[in-house]
Structures are given as structure tokens and as C-alpha cells.
């Protein structure tokens, strides 16, 4: 057990009690137990049940029938279900790629004025989308993107009246439009995270690079990006999970339409489980989603950790 200092007087006097009070044993466990119980009852048990339900055909009300892995077969063969997974991956391009790449570019550009008053105001403003409910973002943006909305008004103003449309109701643009809402929500967070990371980079590195005659681009590629490895990994993880598990925005903005162009696994699970009462299929999709999220998150974490060693 823990090497105890000889001066622990109580320990000398009552060895049995000490054993009981050993913070690494029973007492320590008493500290962990309440958290563990909540976690087990409301997370671990439901996870196990999701696995179990996924093996049954069940309408949520009557009796259930064991169907083995058939529901998984359905997830990968029914185009409606499989397409929702594909859509989630397409959303990554918007939820992750845009905020991270654009965030990097913006952070690099404003790095020099990071301490100005304007930048401090910007810190607050850029955080707003993180603070408000995603539902509100969905409501506001579906109105902006409507056929009579501000986006079309602005496009007409700059002479692009020809491309105006109901962005969320068009088969070609609905998914990108929903993706842009996600990008709007996540861009501020990524920018500020990366900016915070940049402030930790030793300015001497940049000076050295300048002395070597490196341009802004060289600086960016050979100093900024490698130093931000961990921050970038964090941005990618957070945004990829947000894309794969998206629900709120799409529930509000498109309900998965038009057609099924914006259907994502989260919404599909909700519909399947509660409106169509195909609990088994919903659970199989839920298992696939959980596995996908972990499968995407783990490699990114390892990538970040390796870079630190």
C-alpha cells in the first residue's frame, strides 16, 4: 500500500482501523461510488441496453422478437439509413474542415493584434454561437436562408440574384446549407482555441524564421501549424463529433429534408425509435453511431499525443 510516513500517529495506535481507512481502499472507493453509480445507471446500462435492443425487433410497446444481427444488415443496406451515415460524413467537411482551416487562417492573421481592444471585443462576440442553444441557431439560420431571407437579399445586392434560392429546400444546397450553420457555430470556438495556442508559441521562433528570410506562408507552415498540433487535434475532435452526432440544428432547420438529403443518424434514430417505433433498427443505428464516433475520436487523440512525446 502507500508508503506511509512514520509520523502518522493514529496509524500506529490502531492498525485495524488504518486498514479500513486506507484512502486507497474502502474510503477511496466511497468517494468514487456515487459518481460511478450515476454513470452506471444512466450511461453504462443504457449503452448495454442499446446493444441488446439492436438484436431484437421491437415496437417499444408489445413483445419483442430476437432477430440477431439482422438490424445491422438493414443499417448498411437500406439506402435511407445508410445515406444518413454518409450525410454525417459529408457534414464533417463543413463542421470540421471549414472551422479548422478558416480558423487557422484567421488566427494567424489576427495573431499580431490579439491583444488589441478590438480583439478582446471579438473574443466575446465570436463566442456567442457557442453559448446559445443550437435550436436558436437553427431557427435564426432557417430564416436567414429562406427564399426571402437575408442571404438572398445580400446575394441580390452584389449582383448574384441568379443564384438565390430557398437554400434549405433545394436538393443540391440543403446539406451544405445545414453544414454552414454548423460551421458558423464552431468557427468562433476553433479560432479562439487556435489563437490561445498561438500565444504560447515562443516569439523567438518567428524572429529566427524572419531572419532566415521566411515569408508569412513558410512561417505558418513550419512554425505555426506544427506548434498547434494539440489545439488542432482538439478542434478536429470536437467538430467531428459535433458533425457525426448532429441533431438539434437539423431537427429545427430541415427535419432531414428535402427528400432525405439532410437526414443524419441522430435524427434518424429519433424518428425510428419514437415515430416509427422500430426500436431494434434505431438501436442498431445508435450502436453504429457510437462506434463511429469512437473510431474517429481515438486516432485523432493518439495523433495529438504522439506529437507531444
Amino acid at each position: 500500500m502507500t508508503p506511509r510516513s512514520a509520523g502518522a500517529r493514529t496509524a500506529h495506535r490502531r492498525p485495524v482501523a488504518t486498514k479500513l481507512r486506507d484512502p486507497r481502499g474502502l474510503v477511496g472507493w466511497l468517494f468514487v461510488a456515487p459518481a460511478l453509480i450515476f454513470y452506471a445507471v444512466f450511461v453504462l446500462r443504457p449503452i448495454t441496453l442499446t446493444f441488446q435492443y439492436s438484436m431484437y425487433e421491437w415496437n417499444g410497446i408489445g413483445a419483442s422478437t430476437w432477430v440477431g444481427p439482422a438490424n445491422y444488415g438493414k443499417v448498411f443496406t437500406d439506402p435511407d439509413l445508410f445515406d444518413s451515415l454518409i450525410n454525417a460524413f459529408k457534414l464533417i467537411a463543413f463542421f470540421s474542415a471549414i472551422p479548422v482551416v478558416l480558423g487557422l487562417a484567421i488566427a494567424a492573421t489576427i495573431r499580431r493584434i490579439a491583444q488589441s481592444r478590438l480583439a478582446l471585443v471579438a473574443r466575446t462576440v465570436l463566442f456567442l454561437p457557442q453559448v446559445i442553444p443550437l435550436v436558436a441557431a437553427g431557427i435564426a439560420w432557417s430564416w436567414l436562408l429562406a427564399s426571402t431571407g437575408v442571404i438572398n437579399q445580400l446575394l441580390s445586392l452584389i449582383g448574384l440574384g441568379g443564384v438565390t434560392r430557398a437554400w434549405l429546400g433545394d436538393f443540391d444546397t440543403a446539406l451544405p446549407a445545414v453544414g454552414m450553420i454548423g460551421a458558423w457555430v464552431l468557427l468562433g470556438l476553433c479560432t479562439l482555441l487556435l489563437l490561445a495556442g498561438m500565444s504560447k508559441i515562443d516569439p523567438a521562433l518567428y524572429e529566427a524564421a524572419r531572419l532566415d528570410g521566411a515569408g508569412a506562408w513558410r512561417e505558418f507552415v513550419s512554425i505555426t501549424v506544427p506548434s498547434l498540433r494539440q489545439e488542432i487535434a482538439v478542434c478536429v475532435t470536437v467538430t467531428v463529433i459535433a458533425a457525426l452526432a448532429s441533431f438539434d440544428i437539423i431537427y429545427i432547420a430541415t427535419q432531414g429534408g428535402p427528400g432525405n438529403t439532410t437526414m443524419v443518424p441522430g435524427l434518424q434514430i429519433f424518428y425510428l425509435a419514437f415515430a416509427e417505433r422500430e426500436v431494434g433498427t434505431a438501436s442498431a443505428l445508435a450502436v453504429v453511431l457510437m462506434v463511429l464516433v469512437i473510431a474517429c475520436a481515438l486516432p485523432i487523440q493518439w495523433f495529438a499525443k504522439d506529437g507531444n512525446r
Binding site: 452506471a40 441496453l49 441488446q52 421491437w58 408489445g62 419483442s64
Partner: peptide, 14 residues
């Protein structure tokens, strides 16, 4: 301990 809480998950759903 954690699995103890899961024991209930044995019967078929419903």
C-alpha cells in the same frame, strides 16, 4: 460494481 447495475438488462425488451 458497474456491471452489477447492468444485470437488469438481461430480459428481452418489453
Amino acid at each position: 460494481i458497474a456491471m452489477g447495475a447492468l444485470a437488469a438488462a438481461c430480459a428481452a425488451p418489453g
